[in-house]
């Protein structure tokens, strides 16, 4: 099987969906000739022209507002928001418009809208270009949220997102977009369903729920712990946090009796907190040790290698947390 990275997977998914459905179009900044910040959608402008690969002014609110207007009148926009940090500019469109319309209009409207944005730290981009904001978005009923950890999942999930009749936020971790590990991707058509976690490594001692880039760090930690201490981690990647596949997580905890939630968010108001709450509520009897969370500190993301590396959750912190609940 061929191997590609997440950036290439994203480009393939969008290209294939535009080919498949004439209702799909792209709207955002620098999506045209430039083909996205990293050239990830290069070629589409040449193929479809400015009409359907629509470069916009710097107007995040109007990008999302226009995408909403197009979505409710028969199209399937992909609104490229660049950095999730910028979405504050278009917060009302997310908070009060796209996610509320179906409900407040009594189920009589569909908003098939995909937003994609870079998220996460590790590129020395400082406080306004590095956040993991999924916890904040997760609080808004009506939105689906995808956090892919590898190219294969990303491609299949993005195709599912574009076909979904609801607003979907697709978050690409920067460390996976720039360089990033490659993964095997089938040649033909495939999709990955929402709400199905995947066990990225089977194990018996501790369940680690990890998202996006943290999945890779969890896998590294699992290898190390296996070799050095014969501790077996089961790594669960939810892939979509809304909808969230709690069954897979609860079943894993039932087997291991221990849970660590490992995400790159600030701990307060995080998806990680939500997973811990669900397992405490519905899986308490399975637990042999307290639930642990390994997240980032509640500070803005700092600049530079020293500070940012300290800020980002890493294998050592994960291993420390696992040692605490296994010794």
């Amino acid at each position: 099987m061929r191997e590609i990275n997440l950036r290439e997977a994203l480009g393939e998914a969008i290209a294939e969906e535009m080919e498949r459905d004439p209702a799909v179009f792209i709207i955002g900044e620098d999506v045209g000739k430039m083909g996205g910040l990293m050239g990830e959608i290069g070629g589409l402008y040449d193929k479809y022209g400015a009409e359907k690969v629509r470069d916009t002014p710097l107007s995040e609110a109007a990008i999302l507002g226009a995408a909403i207007g197009a979505a409710i009148t028969g199209l399937r926009p992909i609104a490229r928001m660049r950095f999730c940090d910028f979405m504050g500019i278009a917060w009302d469109e997310v908070l009060n418009q796209m996610t509320k319309m179906r409900y407040m209009f009594g189920g009589k409207i569909k908003v098939p809208l995909t937003m994609d944005a870079l998220s996460g730290a590790g590129r020395r981009s400082a406080a306004q270009h590095s956040q993991s904001l999924e916890g904040m978005f997760m609080c808004i009923p009506g939105l689906k949220i995808v956090l892919p950890s590898n190219a294969r999942d990303a491609k299949g999930l993005l195709k599912t997102a574009i076909r979904d009749d609801n607003p979907v936020l697709f978050l690409e971790h920067k460390r996976l977009m720039w360089g990033g590990p490659k993964s095997e991707v089938p040649d033909g058509e495939y999709t990955v369903p929402f709400g199905q976690a995947e066990i990225k490594r089977e194990g018996s001692d501790v369940t680690v729920v990890a998202t996006a880039y943290m999945v890779h760090r969890a896998l590294d930690a699992a290898e190390k712990l296996q070799q050095e201490k014969d501790i077996s981690l089961e790594i669960v990647d939810p892939r979509t946090i809304v909808p969230f596949d709690k069954e897979t997580v609860l079943n894993s905890v039932k087997k291991t009796g221990r849970l660590v939630v490992f995400t790159e968010e600030c701990a307060t108001g995080s998806f990680a907190g939500q997973v811990a709450a669900i397992v405490a509520d519905e899986g308490f009897d399975y637990l042999d040790a307290p639930i642990k969370r390994v997240n980032a500190p509640d500070t803005p993301v700092p600049y530079g290698i020293i500070l940012e590396d300290f800020w980002m959750p890493d294998e050592n912190q994960l291993i420390k947390a696992i040692n605490e609940i296994t010794s």
Binding site: R54, G65, A66, I68, G69, A70, I72, T73, L75
Partner: peptide, 9 residues
């Protein structure tokens, strides 16, 4: 902006 989007559509 939503009206702009309907026009775009």
């Amino acid at each position: 902006p939503i009206a702009t989007g309907a026009g775009l559509s």
